[in-house]
Write a protein that binds this DNA or RNA. Sequence first.
DNA 1: TCTGGGGTCCTAGGACCC
DNA 2: TCTGGGGTCCTAGGACCC
Length: 412
Amino acid sequence: MSVERVIFHVDMDAFFVSVEEIFDPTLKGKPVVVGGLAHERGVVAAASYEVRKFGVHSAMPLRHAYRLCPQAVFIPGHPDRYRSYSRQVRAVLDDFSPQVKMASIDEAYLDMTGSKRLLGPPLNVANSLHETIKEKIRLPCSIGIGTSRLVAKIASDMAKPNGILSVLPGAEDRFLAPLDVARIPGVGKVSQENLCKYGIHKIGQLTRLQEEHLRSIWGKAGVSLVAKSRGLDVDMWSSPGMSVPDKPKSISHETTFRDDTTKQDLIDATLVKLVQLVGRRLRGYGLHGRTIQLKLRYADFKTITRARTLIRSTQLDTVILASIRELFSQNWNEDKAIRLLGVQIGSLETTSGQLDWIDDPRDRKWKQALEATDAVRNRFGESSIGLASAMKNAHQERVHENTVDVPERKLE
DNA sequence: TCTGGGGTCCTAGGACCC
DNA sequence: TCTGGGGTCCTAGGACCC
């Protein structure tokens, strides 16, 4: 018989807005939107509780938010501040549990199993954690307590704002049954509508369904849905040791133009910039990637992705750029204005696809140059150095070498 | 009401190999 | 002389999360 797990889910309230209020206390009590200016192309990243009364919520287009609440204060946001405050929160959490997993910049899971002897009853501990974050960091949060991460997360959601909600062991079903299926993490708009077609609206209805029935309709997703409806951790929630994936599986950057464009030079300069951003972070992680993907969104919002996998993984902007330019020229329909461009690299590995002793001297040269500029950029900022002109025509002749036709090298 | 940016995971089909 | 089944890799698209 295993010990009942005790999981805390700590979720910061309107995190970006709350951080902005620390820097500008006059914002307190006002309708505030973080994410961009009122007439920009973009969406709401965080909404204060005051502005939510007007129907504004996150992920809503900024223009729409403006129409609902013209008197709101619109703030583009300060990602560095949010990251810094996120680290401060984490430091406090680490004092309460050796098992902390940050799920995103503003939420975390704490495994508090077995902490009772040391710290006291979970509800008291949560109270003291709540107080500590309030006093030390001056930020409000909500805490959910449950026997699984799923239950703890839903509980913290219902405790908002500025509250604590504990679901006692054995009470999971009673707690979950009356809730909308959309409360389940992983059930979004589409799944909710699909369930709705079968007359399923509440979590309790899912619990009563036969697993076989759901499997026949929704396959694997259906099976995990039944488990979730019973408050059990499945798939991404399941790892018992709550291991942290510290290395990313892909790295990407994308940008939406202020105005849709067909301008070749603007497009190419944008691709170069995106490649540089991706390349720099790739090297920052010490990773190499093999699959390079271009994302293209047209003015009508039709979006395509086109990918190519290299024979050897790379860390070099020049190699990435050559692939991206090729993918772009092969796929851009020149009549159509472009709304968004994106660059992604995946199939990441810690080791280079190349062995040192067959290292190409040209690659080595580029690698050194990039390391130097990375260092300068890290110290002095993004616009301090541009490799754009230098990269304009470099590596054109190398495209083939990295993508097609490399004769199989019999080395091993 | 015109819809960001950075991710993860899943599905489905085709190529290719045995 | 129309035809198998399993496994892996690759690509494209989409749901979902914060």
